[in-house]
Design a protein around this nucleic acid. Structure first.
Lengths: 355, 355
DNA sequence: TTGAAAGCGGTACCAG
DNA sequence: CTGGTACCGCTTTCAA
């Protein structure tokens, strides 16, 4: 409502003095300071951040772009980002791409023109699409008035040597999941993947293959079925295998949604977990400890990923271009959480309480 | 990077002409238009929304404030808001109050100073706290340069006759839930509430009481236990009743989290659902169809709530102050979803597929 | 149809 | 320590 001019007039001082007390610079006499503060109170003035942003080209707004807001995997990440952002006084925009590069680029463009201070993104720009390549190359050149607008990617590092990332080792996680299945005595292991045009999809397949190889289990490509993140797909995939009379005694699903679908299918068809088939998911979302039997999974430190991303963003924003030539890729640890779908009696369901 | 001045210079035209082609006003000659468009392309210019916002006092930014981002209840609402916002070209800020009025007020103040066009909020300003009252009263006066900044509340209408709301009938929903328990033959019904200092908490208790009354079941206040939204609490509450040897054959939990906690407790203690105890939750989140036995619940159209809120916001923003004196409260329908915790054999678990 | 210039609400430099 | 003023990048009158 009221602006700085009004305050200046009311306080009977110059506009710059008002500015000084607001951003409390030292050089203001106590008397004037009091006058100005009173005027501010009486007018209920608060500074227009949009004007301020225009002037100092700094908005304290961070854009957060994920593939799908309702993908349960992201909600904890968003929480981590949000809590940390609040700590430092940033506001955050949140939006989703629905796995469309088109949408992603559109969103980024829009945020850039809103002069966000930084962008945290779960990018879908992977693979050798020409458009994607140009876009990823441009990421390190985002700027406003010469100062760089940092981009931090979630889950995996994009193909640009200047862009930081907060990730986990997907290959290793998959390797451990599958090794665990082998350890509990399984050999015919099905792998339900996330889409294979994604980094995560490919890395997890690599881990799957390595685990088989190191345990001298011959690879059967038909045991790998491409998934789409949904519970429904996991459900159908298992039913299809069953209907076809395919032999399998283990399943590694690349996310928990699909694992739960698989679990449901097994339950319905009278397959005993883990005796007949051992099953392990990925992500360790709270649902894993709620289903019956409880689902083994790979824990991904989602909150920490979000928090770390925001911490890193803040660092980049405050420590500027301190000639950090090389990007920083922060890898957080995953760990296997054993429950009843792979080892009888391991309820390990404490987690069901916190959702 | 490049600004309108650069474009004007490059195209060899006046700055206003550039503005005209950008916002495509009619009065520009074809020749100039082409020149300008080429300049825009070559410079990769896109208009600075922050400067534009300052000038026209319209940012196309909407603030969305919920109590907790990770509260699963909200994620679908956010999705509805987001999808609709995208349709109309709004960006949205998302933040959480963690049920603190303090935080809520701070956030609102901050968004106001960023000149958001509107605010959609699941407010915690309920009850007769002086500070809350002042704040709620102020809601209808939020404005920038005289034009009003609309506020729309989620879940329930705040105590301000000018503020729109998108809600469901909590009293009725609770009434139906409890009536259903009675219909399936239960009489000693426990009610685990959400916090009783909330509108939802109180209304659901009212519904609970009305259902008992209309079925001539005497009210026993000790059957009402105040909850806190968490699974853990539902779990403990039931265990406490069991330990104390309390008699009960039905439970209405005011959200699904607590219902799942209660379900887990029953499962562990050998209580057979629904024979010994019938259980119904509230919200119908996807988890209801995943647990064993599947959980009866009250379906709340969360996506629609979000979408409707954003549609209404857009309406308010485009149709301005068309002297709509009176606020609009849009009430969406809830419906009961019967599953195995109240009626044997009613799996009704299609929903488990879509998460 | 076109360009100049004022002004949105601030910040920061400069002179006093 | 204080006030005047240019300017951030854009929109919009006003005159030409």
């Amino acid at each position: 409502m009221a602006n700085i001019k009004d305050v200046a007039k009311k306080a009977g001082v110059g506009i710059s003095t008002v500015s000084r007390v607001i951003n409390d610079t030292k050089n203001v006499s106590p008397e004037l300071r009091v006058k100005v503060e009173r005027a501010i109170d009486e007018l209920g003035y608060s500074t227009n951040q949009i004007a301020r942003g225009l002037k100092i080209s700094q908005t304290r707004n961070i854009a957060v772009i994920v593939t799908a807001i309702s993908r349960i995997f992201f909600t904890t990440i968003l929480e981590g980002i949000n809590k940390t952002a609040e700590k430092y006084g940033y506001s955050i925009y949140i939006s989703e791409t629905n796995d469309s590069l088109e949408t992603e680029i559109k969103l980024v463009r829009s945020y850039l023109s809103q002069w966000v201070d930084g962008i945290i993104i779960a990018s879908v720009a992977y693979g050798d699409d020409k458009r994607a390549e140009r876009y990823v190359a441009a990421m390190s050149k985002f700027n406003k008035k010469g100062t760089r607008i940092p981009v931090i990617t979630l889950e995996y590092p994009v193909d640009n040597e200047m862009i930081d990332a907060i990730v986990v080792d997907h290959e290793k996680a998959a390797y451990e999941a599958v090794s665990h299945l082998i350890d509990v005595g399984k050999r015919d292991i099905m792998h339900i993947t996330v889409p294979l045009n994604t980094y995560m999809g490919q890395k997890r397949v690599e881990g799957y293959k390595r685990a088989l190889k190191e345990h001298d289990i011959p690879l059967d490509e038909t045991m790998i079925v491409e998934g789409d993140y949904t519970s429904h797909l996991g459900y159908k995939a298992v039913n299809r295998f069953l209907d076809a009379g395919r032999k399998f005694d283990g399943i590694f699903a690349a996310n928990d949604q699909m694992a739960v679908g698989a679990l449901r299918a097994c339950n319905e068809r009278g397959i005993i977990l883990p005796d007949d088939v051992a099953l392990i998911g990925n992500d360790n979302v709270f649902v894993s400890s709620i289903v019956e039997p409880s689902l083994s999974s790979i824990d991904v430190p989602r909150y920490e990923i979000g928090a770390t991303a925001m911490e890193r963003m803040h660092y980049l924003l405050t420590h500027g271009e301190k000639k950090e030539k090389k990007r920083k890729i922060i890898t957080l640890d995953t760990k296997i959480v054993v429950r009843e779908t792979t080892v009888k009696g391991e309820r390990n369901n404490l987690k069901y309480l916190d959702w």
